[in-house]
Design a protein around this nucleic acid. Sequence first.
RNA 1: GCCCAGUUAGUGUAGUGGCCUAUCAUGCAGCCCUGUCACGGCUGCGACACGGAUUCGAAUUCCGUACUGGGCGCCA
Length: 459
Amino acid sequence: MTFIRFFLPLLKNTYKTKIMVKDTHYCRYYMRIPLKDVTPELETAEVIGWVHEIRDLGGLAFYILRDRTGFLQAAVIKKKAPEAVLIAAKEVSRESVVRIKGVVKESDKAPGGREIIPESFEIISKAETPLPLDVSDKVLAEVDTRLDNRYLDARRPKVAAIFQIRNAATHAINDYFYNEGFINITTSKIVAAATEGGTELFPIAYFEKEAFLNQSPQLYKQMMMAAGFEKVYEIGPIFRAEEHNTTRHLNEATSIDVEVSFADHNDVMDLLENVIIAAYENVDKTCSDAIETLGVDFSVPKKGFPKLTYAEAIDIAAVSIEEDIAYGDDLSTSAERAIGEEMGEHYFITDWPTSIKPYYAMPYENEPEICKAFDMMHPRMELSSGAQRIHQHDLLVEQILQKGMSPEGFEFYLKPFKYGMPPHAGWGVGMERLIMTMLDLPNIREAVLFPRDRHRVTP
RNA sequence: GCCCAGUUAGUGUAGUGGCCUAUCAUGCAGCCCUGUCACGGCUGCGACACGGAUUCGAAUUCCGUACUGGGCGCCA
């Protein structure tokens, strides 16, 4: 019986057309109405949701139901309600899943101007008490408690809103690349050696071989340039085994990685701006409810991010921070912040010293001490780094040696440079940082469903 | 890797040697309540991370252990 009730609509689209309301996004597959679509015009409705709050006034009790679309109040009038409704209403706990059928009434006293008067009230899945955290936000839990109970935490509209927005951003980025003729690739996350340098890798057991989780798809993107794919991108996980413990680092992050042949650093900086703006624009266009739920100031950045050379950035930092900073130093966190404050919007730092950028960054022909590498910054932090890459085999080997690394270690990477490697450029953007800065989230863990940090491997 | 801080009911907290039989809020249970929307009222339930030391007396001081948060470095 249950089987028929659930699956008949799939086979026979006309069944129960009365509640097959306009929004096919939510309705096509279920015999229920999303809560936001419940209106008095329906007269009757069957809804399923979580019991968000219970307010028992004595002769009258209110049950606030919640699903991903919103809230609906069910009003149980104890003198009039059927016995079975009273029993279930008494029995139910907060955060239980319930199915309610009843009459929908207009009421200016009810939230959203309408409420449902249950004629049946079925507890589909009862929630135990006490709950590990308060979904209704009366007592805010700490991030750690929330992450331990992420499935409950994510029931909170504010949390759901973040991932709705992340979805819209990801979708826009994929769309942008697709429309621009990029090929979406996926590359292996299991690698044989520390190829890029500069960061610690997680060792893994790979049968009888030594292997690691990849820190970046960099080398693979470049190999696909040699393959003639011309424009590739990948949105995927990267792993860094650094023991940092901060609100802006993850040991597993999502990288939006791009590589373009026959392009230089300026071309891909232009591309980067477009991608960031496309993400913001789609969020702006499709997520106004989520933005409102989060209560953040949201504005789409304007095309033409200011460009600062590394030397100029150092000058700004030198006058605004206490600590000593000189040409050739990496930009410290406090320097980054000081420059960000000065800039007040997204910006690029270009023309970095070759000595502090990875070996694959292309030095300027006339001034090889600096290279065609750039960082793209949000006032709060670094979002992206990229460069025109070295495509000449011998120059690459020279740079690797200069960094004190051994070319023998990654012959598989160098070999493609011998057989027709086009000039190319690319970048990587931290997805979580993009979302974090977009929504002004205090902690990067808020931008991932299941963050992996120094201590956390569950859930 | 270096440095700092923390751990008290399910959740979030108060607490600086005796007034702690541990505060408050939320939650939960019971009773009252027909328009709540942070419903309200009354009663109750529920916690000092672990081990050791100091002391007449330790949630509070000291040592160790475990766990956690944060800053820096490095980076996305």
